Measured scan of single mutants.
Amino acid sequence: VTTYKLVINGKTLKGETTTKAVDAETAEKAFKQYANDNGVDAVWTYDDATKTFTVTEMV
């Protein structure tokens, strides 16, 4: 189990959160659900070296 981080650069929601998951795909599903629940529709990137997902909402 690995800890993954999500950085949110949204128009109305900004911040960071983490989740523990067995792999990046599982973490991504959890983070996308979190973003969807909070109304963030954005572009996703992932950095495997830092285990960090970044979501940037387009203006």
Rank of each mutant, 00 (worst) to 15 (best):
D23V: 02
K20H: 11
G39P: 05
K51T: 02
T12E: 11
A24D: 03
N36G: 14
T56P: 02
T3F: 05
D37Q: 14
T3V: 12
Y34E: 03
M58S: 10
E16L: 06
T54C: 07
V59H: 10
L13K: 05
D47C: 08
E16F: 11
T26K: 04
A30P: 01
V55E: 01
T50L: 06
V1Q: 10
Y4P: 01
D47E: 04
G15D: 11
D48P: 11
A42W: 15
A30W: 13
T19N: 03
T52D: 00
T26N: 06
T45Q: 08
M58C: 13
T18V: 07
N38I: 15
A42S: 06
T12W: 15
Y4R: 00
N9A: 06
T45N: 07
A21V: 03
K14T: 11
L13N: 11
T3W: 06
V55R: 03
K29M: 09
F31G: 00
T12N: 13
M58T: 11
D23G: 02
G39S: 07
L13F: 15
T19M: 14
D48G: 06
K5C: 08
L6S: 01
T18H: 11
V1N: 08
Q33K: 12
Y4N: 02
Q33T: 07
A49D: 10
G39E: 06
T45D: 09
T54L: 05
Q33L: 09
F53H: 01
G10S: 14
Y46C: 01
A21T: 03
T18G: 02
Y4W: 04
V40E: 05
D37G: 08
Y34M: 07
M58W: 11
T17G: 05
T52S: 02
G39W: 15
V22Y: 09
Q33A: 10
L6F: 07
D23F: 03
I8A: 03
L6W: 02
G39M: 14
A27I: 02
V43G: 04
Y4V: 02
E25Q: 11
A35F: 14
F31R: 00
L6R: 00
A35N: 04
T19F: 13
I8Q: 02
K32T: 05
A24V: 13
K11W: 11
V55C: 14
D48C: 04
E16R: 04
K5L: 07
Y4F: 10
T3N: 05
T18I: 07
K20W: 10
K5Y: 10
T52G: 00
I8D: 02
E16D: 06
K20S: 12
K32M: 09
K32E: 04
Y34A: 03
G39A: 07
A27Q: 00
Q33W: 05
M58I: 12
W44R: 00
T50Y: 03
T19P: 01
K32W: 06
V59M: 10
N9P: 05
E16P: 06
T17Q: 09
T2Y: 13
K32R: 14
V1F: 12
T50H: 04
T52Q: 03
N9I: 14
L13S: 07
T19R: 04
K14Q: 14
V59K: 08
N9E: 06
I8V: 06
E28P: 00
E25R: 08
G15L: 15
V7A: 03
V1T: 10
T2H: 13
D47P: 00
V1W: 12
A30H: 13
T52H: 01
A49P: 05
T52K: 02
D23K: 03
K14C: 15
I8E: 02
G39N: 11
E57S: 05
F53C: 01
T56G: 06
T50C: 03
L6G: 01
V59F: 12
G10K: 08
N36S: 14
G15Y: 15
V59L: 10
K5R: 12
V7F: 05
Q33M: 08
V1H: 11
E57P: 05
E57Q: 06
V55L: 11
N9L: 13
A49G: 08
A49I: 09
T45K: 07
W44V: 02
K32P: 00
V1Y: 12
W44C: 03
N9C: 13
A30Q: 09
K29L: 10
K14D: 07
T56I: 09
T17Y: 15
V1A: 09
A27S: 01
K20P: 04
A42I: 08
E57G: 06
K51C: 04
V55T: 04
Y46K: 00
N38P: 07
N9W: 11
K20M: 12
T19K: 05
D47R: 00
V55K: 02
A35C: 15
A49T: 12
T17H: 15
L6V: 03
T50M: 04
D37S: 10
K51I: 01
Y4E: 01
F31Q: 00
V43L: 09
M58F: 12
T56S: 07
V40G: 05
G15I: 15
A27C: 03
K5F: 11
K29G: 04
V22S: 10
V55M: 13
G10R: 07
G15V: 15
Y46D: 00
W44G: 00
N36M: 15
V40Q: 06
E16M: 08
F31E: 00
A21Q: 05
L13C: 15
N38M: 15
T17M: 14
K32N: 03
G15F: 15
A24Q: 12
T52V: 05
A35G: 02
M58V: 12
T19Q: 06
K14M: 12
A24S: 08
D41S: 10
A49W: 07
A35K: 04
V55P: 01
K32Q: 09
K51Q: 07
M58H: 12
G10D: 05
T12I: 12
K51G: 03
T26P: 00
K32V: 07
K51P: 00
Y34N: 03
K29E: 08
A24N: 04
T12C: 15
T50N: 07
N38W: 15
L13P: 04
A30I: 15
T50F: 03
E57I: 05
K14R: 13
E57H: 06
D37H: 10
T2K: 09
D41T: 09
A49N: 10
D48M: 06
T3C: 13
T12V: 13
W44Q: 00
K29C: 07
T17S: 09
A30T: 13
T56M: 07
